[in-house]
């Protein structure tokens, strides 16, 4: 390698690519969370670990497994990896799935929301397992196991933010109505 062989412009462009990827990533999520409608839903947690990101609680929701016999659906055969839209209806304090479709759904009602996800597993004519990207809640090292014990005996709720495109983000986690704060 020779000295002065490097172009400052190419080098700057390479730095810009990395900074832009990180900044766009953060900006997109921040915008989605700030502009989204906030709802609180019941969750069923588990406790795995990510090698890069540390401890996290894996969350599952009532609308993660959709029984096709109980909701409106535009087809019987969904397939793994397919993008779907689920209409959530507010029933009492909880949000339940009301409709699933592979095309964009709309709703003007206040007690309805559209959330987008990807089919994880499909059982034709019976049920569909959907993931929404809100199945993880990261916690400080070692807290995962502690929380796991706590949440097995208590009611766990998650505050979600769902933007107008149906993209959901996890905001906060509550145990028996109290926000879990690790600070």
């Amino acid at each position: 390698m020779k000295k002065n062989e490097y172009s400052i412009y190419v080098f700057l462009a390479a730095i810009l690519v990395q900074v832009a990827v990180l900044a766009l990533f953060a900006y997109h999520k921040e915008l989605s969370i700030r502009s989204g409608t906030k709802i609180i839903v019941e969750a069923i947690p588990q406790d795995p670990r990510s090698i890069f990101r540390g401890d996290y609680i894996r969350l599952s929701y009532e609308f993660s497994q959709i029984n096709l016999n109980e909701v409106l659906h535009n087809k019987d055969n969904f397939y793994r990896g397919q993008e779907v839209f689920v209409k959530l209806s507010s029933i009492g304090d909880n949000w339940k799935p009301a409709q699933i479709s592979d095309s964009l759904l709309t709703s003007d009602k206040e007690d309805e929301l559209i959330i987008s996800g990807v089919v994880e597993e499909a059982y034709p004519g019976k049920s569909v397992n959907v993931i929404y990207g809100i199945e993880s809640y990261f916690v400080p090292e070692g807290k995962g196991r502690y929380l796991e014990k706590q949440i097995l005996q208590h009611n766990v709720q998650v505050k979600l933010s769902i933007d107008k495109r149906g993209e959901a983000s996890v905001c906060k986690i509550f145990i028996d109505g109290h926000e879990v704060n690790f600070r």
Binding site: L22, K29, S50, F52, F138
Partner: peptide, 20 residues
């Protein structure tokens, strides 16, 4: 720097609880 950049991606995923 490239390793730090990779770490940054996972940090963002952690910050926003993204189940990516």
């Amino acid at each position: 720097g490239n390793l730090l950049y990779g770490g940054g991606i996972w940090l963002l995923a952690q910050m926003y609880h993204i189940h990516c």
